[in-house]
């Protein structure tokens, strides 16, 4: 008798696992059907849930950073997320952070794992076809982090050098365009994360680490510097699902309000940006 209980338990366990898999699949499909109707209020859903799910960077100091000293998310984008959470749920604490990279943020948004992505997400025409973006909350440009000892002065001095860029970022396309304008050429190395790129620079795998200047600023140390030259203005927006305009309209209102009353400026100053 004892053993048959064990069998039952085992079968129950495996059954529940199978249903778990099945459910997560179903959820994904039903999610899609929801999108097309989009009649039920997404904001209301977040309110009911009581938690705002936000995709944020964890490796970009001053923007979205998981601070090893405190083991907490911090940065200007985290502050914006907190403000939004406060606005929707009534408390800045009701946030569930999900760490994302340039590669992972799109798919996570598609699947509804996060309500919105605030992760140095540059607004481009191409991306606008797939996602909704709010008005920009921050403007930046692409820059280069180089070793001081290499004596690079401007973009042109990097002619023929190897530039490290993040996989799935817009940097490579922007660089190719700029290089064509200037009549120079670059070699590229694509790596998965910013820390890896920084290490690649330290170890001379690349001559310059290129991404938005603000991101670079978190990686400057005694032996490296950011070139003054920058190009290709980058505007960061909060991304939400394309199928759901409601959240986007709502967020747009908030951003505009915070731009006017100086809240946004305060946050930007707080993190020493610009």
């Amino acid at each position: 008798m004892k053993i048959s209980k064990k069998i039952m338990l085992g079968m129950l366990l495996s059954l529940s696992l199978i249903t778990l898999f099945a459910c997560s699949k179903k959820e994904a499909t039903s999610d899609k059907s929801n999108d097309s109707s989009s009649s039920n209020s997404q904001i209301q859903k977040i309110k009911d849930r009581g938690v705002l799910k936000v995709g944020v960077k964890e490796d970009v100091p001053n923007f979205g950073y998981m601070n090893p000293d405190t083991n907490k998310n911090e940065g200007m984008e985290i502050d914006i997320a907190k403000l939004i959470a406060k606005e929707i749920t009534g408390s800045a604490k009701n946030i569930e952070y999900t760490g994302v990279t340039a590669k992972t943020r799109g798919p996570l948004l598609d699947n509804g794992e996060v309500d919105m992505v605030i992760a140095t997400f540059t607004i481009t025409d191409e991306r606008k076809e797939t996602y909704n973006f709010t008005t920009p909350y921050y403007e930046d440009q692409v820059g280069f982090l180089v070793k001081k000892s290499d004596d690079f002065s401007d973009i042109k001095s990097l002619d023929g050098k190897t530039i490290g860029v993040a996989q799935s970022a817009t940097t490579k396309q922007a660089l190719e365009q700029k290089a064509k304008e200037l009549g120079i050429s670059f070699k590229y190395l694509e790596l998965g994360s910013y820390p890896e790129l920084k290490t690649a620079l330290t170890s001379k795998r690349i001559d310059a680490f290129s991404v938005d200047k603000s991101i670079l600023s978190g990686y400057v140390d005694k032996s490296t510097e950011i070139l003054d030259d920058g190009f290709s203005p980058q505007e960061y927006g909060i991304a939400t699902k394309k199928s759901n305009d409601e959240v986007n309209t709502y967020l747009n209102k908030l951003i505009k309000k915070w731009q006017k009353d100086g809240t946004l400026d305060k946050i930007i100053k707080k993190w020493d940006l610009n």
């Binding site: 890896e196 290490t199 690649a200 330290t202 170890s203 001379k204 795998r205």
Partner: peptide
């Protein structure tokens, strides 16, 4: 080998 060794000039 990829990141570490170049620091001691083995690329």
């Amino acid at each position: 080998i990829y990141y570490g060794l170049p620091l001691i000039n083995i690329v």
